[in-house]
Design a protein around this nucleic acid. Structure first.
Lengths: 191, 191
DNA sequence: TGGTTGAAACTACCATGGCAGATGGCAGGG
DNA sequence: CCCTGCCATCTGCCATGGTAGTTTCAACCA
C-alpha cells in the first residue's frame, strides 16, 4: 500500500523473512491473507507477486465497496439502537467541525469514523469483515476526494440524508442514499 | 459444510492433522482461510471454533451475495462479448431442459452454470473472488428453493430478463433484475 | 548470431520440534 | 456444597530443515 513495491514484482517468503528477521512461516501466512484480499497473487512453486492495481480494478473494487456500504446502511436502518443514533449524529457533527477547520486529514478521519459508526449499527460480522478487507484499497483512491469546498458540501449533505434515513428506520432509503453517495464519490475519485 | 461439526465445536490443528495423516502446518493454513471466509473463528492460544450459522447470519450473507451478483450482472452488461452472449443463452436453454426433465439436481447445477457464465462475462477478478468465498454458504440455503413448479417458472422468467438486459447492454436493468431475482430467491429460501 | 539444453539457484511447500499461554479438572479450604 | 488456587494437558504459534518443482543463465551447438 505504501507503493514501495512495484506491481508484478516478486516477493520472496524467505527473503522477506530475513529482512524482518523472523521465520518464513508467519511471512507465508501473511502473504496468504494478502492473497485472499487480492493484494498479491501466488503462482505455485514459482513466487508471490504484487498485484497490479490499475484504474479499472480500483473502480471495480469501488463498485463493490459501494454496494456493500449500501447493505450496511440498510441493516443499520433496521437495527440501529438509540445509542447508535447518537453516535452517528455525533460523528456527523465532527465532520462538519473538521470541515470548518479546513483540516483535510481530520475530515478524512471523521469521515471514516462515521462509516465505522454505521458499520457498528449494522452489527453484521460479514459485512464488516468484507468491508474491512477492502479498506486498504480506499487509501489509494481517497486522496483527491473532498478536495474542493463544493465537493465537501455535497458529501456532507449526502451524509445527512443517509443518517436521517437510518434514524427514521427507512431501510430502502438508507440503502439508496448510501449507494448514491458511494458511487458519486467513486466517480469523483476515479474520473 | 457437511454439517458433521456442530457450531461452536472446537477444531484442533494437531488433531485434524493426525486424522488426515498430514502435518499441522497445512491444516493451520486451511483453517486460516476458513477464518477469512467466516466459517470458523480462532481465539488466540485457545482454539479454533466452528462458526454459528444461524438464520440471521445466512440471511445477511444472502443479502451480500445478492448485491454482489447484481454488480456482476452490471459489469457483464457493460463487457460481455458475443461469445459470452452465446454461453448465457446456452445455459438458459439448459436450465429450461433440466426443468422439463424434473431433475432437481440438474436444475441446481444448470442454475449455477448460468451464474458462472455471468461471472465470466463480468470478467472481474474481485467480484468473482468474493462470490467464490460466499459460495459455500449457498449450499446451506439452496435446498428448498426451486421446489415448486410455480417457483421454477418465476425463476426462469427472471433469468431470461437478466440475460436479456445483459445482452442488450443495459447495465442498470441487468443490475436491478439480478438483485430482484437474488432477493426474491433469498426470501423463498429463508422465509 | 540465434536457439537449445542442462545444471545451479531459487521458489513455494511441508514435516518436525519446541515454546508461551489458555484450559480444565482436582485437591484443599471455606 | 461451593469456591479457590494449582498443575498437567492441550492449544495456537513460530523456528528450523528438507523436498519437489520452477526459473534463470550460461555454455554449447547449428
Amino acid at each position: 500500500m505504501a507503493g514501495s513495491l512495484a506491481p508484478g514484482q516478486r516477493i520472496s517468503e524467505r527473503g522477506l523473512a530475513a529482512a524482518l528477521d523472523i521465520s518464513a512461516q508467519p511471512v507465508r501466512e501473511a502473504l496468504r491473507r494478502l492473497e485472499v484480499e487480492g493484494m498479491v497473487e501466488t503462482r505455485p512453486r514459482s513466487g508471490t507477486y504484487v498485484a497490479d492495481l490499475g484504474r479499472d480494478r480500483l473502480f471495480e473494487i469501488g463498485l463493490i465497496r459501494a454496494t456493500l456500504e449500501a447493505v450496511a446502511a440498510r441493516l443499520a436502518a433496521e437495527r440501529a439502537t438509540p445509542a447508535d443514533h447518537a453516535a452517528m449524529r455525533s460523528r456527523l457533527d465532527a465532520i462538519a467541525g473538521a470541515m470548518r477547520s479546513e483540516d483535510a486529514a481530520a475530515v478524512t478521519l471523521a469521515n471514516e469514523a462515521l462509516h465505522d459508526a454505521i458499520h457498528a449499527a449494522a452489527a453484521s460480522r460479514d459485512v464488516t469483515r468484507l468491508l474491512e478487507g477492502l479498506r486498504a484499497y480506499d487509501h489509494l483512491t481517497r486522496e483527491r476526494i473532498l478536495s474542493t469546498a463544493e465537493e465537501r458540501a455535497t458529501a456532507q449533505a449526502e451524509h445527512q440524508a443517509i443518517v436521517q434515513a437510518i434514524i427514521a428506520g427507512d431501510a430502502r432509503a438508507a440503502e439508496a442514499a448510501m449507494k448514491a453517495h458511494a458511487l458519486r464519490s467513486l466517480s469523483v475519485a476515479l474520473p
